[in-house]
Computed example of a mutant assay.
Amino acid sequence: TWGSCGDSPALACQMAAARTYDRLCGSVQLLLGYLPTERSLWPYELEKKRSQYSAYKDEFLLNPESEILEQIDRDVKRTHPDKSFFSAKSNQESLRRILIIYSRLYPSVRYVQGMNEVLAPLFYVLKNDLDTSNSTSAEADTFFCFVELISGFKNNYCKHLDNSRVGIRSTLSKLSQLLKKHDEELWRHMEVITKVYPQYYAFRWITLLLTMEFSFNVCIHIWDAILGDPEGPPDTLLRICCAMLILVRKRLLAGDFTANIQLLQHYPQTNIDHLLHIANRLRGTMPS
């Protein structure tokens, strides 16, 4: 059934994350299109990109805009303070440089608060590559992977597109339509009866790619599904968001505005494999 969930969600989450970590570590550059599918071209592409990043550092790290720099500094220091990896000064500096360069290289998007949370899993995965020739160049590789990742979602970050057909409000509307198509009873309770609209809970889900809803290791597992799905990351993310609603439908149907907002802003621990199974059942049904 839609709302059922497997036993021992905590254990299932840990096991699923462990299974996918090694796979994602080796494939994230391919999944994001940073590396070509032809393996013989990898050394050339890596050397070219890493050299390009070095040039970016020389060009863009001088005199960054103070307001953006202050925001980046604050956010980097808040990034997973519970993990010693992100407390290391050298790793914080890498995150800081990547975000500064991105904000200057892509002025139409710039830096949006919370991008540090999207960047963190990429850097963690690449920095922990067992191949030291890759781990020592993790900052450069992470930058280009981050660029590729954000490019698939960048319209959600552009304020001037908020009210357009491709901005964040349109994305939230697609989530609403997807829920209505697959569970009209739940959609009606949420949006007609209790007035719990997607912007109250799914804005963060979508713009931060679920990094604030699940533990760090579980996010890596979810990202493996998002990045590797042939329907593309944006549609896959929306299917997972819809599945998150369906998975807790009984609690949502029993809740009022306050209870449901509380539930969705503090999403409960769940069996991630089951969540992804539900999301997979929604395949091919995205609203246009």
Rank of each mutant, 00 (worst) to 15 (best):
S94Q: 15
R96H: 15
E191C: 11
D162K: 10
S133H: 12
W187M: 05
L210C: 08
I206Q: 03
S137L: 15
V192P: 03
R204M: 11
I206L: 15
N128D: 00
C158T: 08
N163T: 15
K181E: 14
K181N: 12
N155P: 03
W205N: 08
I100H: 04
Y124L: 07
W187S: 05
L119C: 08
I193P: 02
E117L: 15
G167S: 05
L179W: 02
T207M: 14
G152L: 05
V218D: 02
E148A: 13
T211R: 15
E117C: 14
L99E: 10
T207N: 12
K159V: 12
T136I: 15
F144A: 04
N163C: 14
N156V: 01
I193S: 06
L119P: 08
G152Q: 12
R104C: 13
L208H: 11
M115L: 09
E213H: 01
D162S: 11
F143D: 03
K180P: 01
S108V: 10
R204Y: 07
K174C: 12
N163I: 13
K159L: 11
G167F: 03
R97G: 09
T207R: 12
K127F: 06
V147S: 00
S103L: 06
K154H: 06
L186R: 06
N128G: 00
T132E: 12
P198S: 03
A138F: 08
R169H: 08
R204D: 12
L99D: 10
P107C: 07
N163S: 15
I150L: 09
Y157I: 03
D183H: 13
F214H: 04
F143N: 07
R104M: 13
G167I: 05
Y102G: 07
M190P: 02
S215A: 01
S94D: 14
S103P: 11
I101R: 08
L178D: 01
L149G: 00
V125L: 05
L209H: 05
E148S: 13
D141T: 15
Q199A: 07
V218L: 00
H189E: 07
E148Q: 13
T171G: 00
V166G: 00
E139Y: 10
L186T: 09
L175C: 08
R110N: 07
T171M: 01
L126C: 00
T171P: 01
I193A: 05
E191T: 13
N163M: 15
L209C: 06
N155I: 01
I98M: 07
R165M: 04
L119H: 02
R104T: 13
G114W: 14
L105Q: 13
R96N: 15
L175T: 06
H182P: 13
S215Q: 07
C145V: 14
F123S: 00
L95M: 15
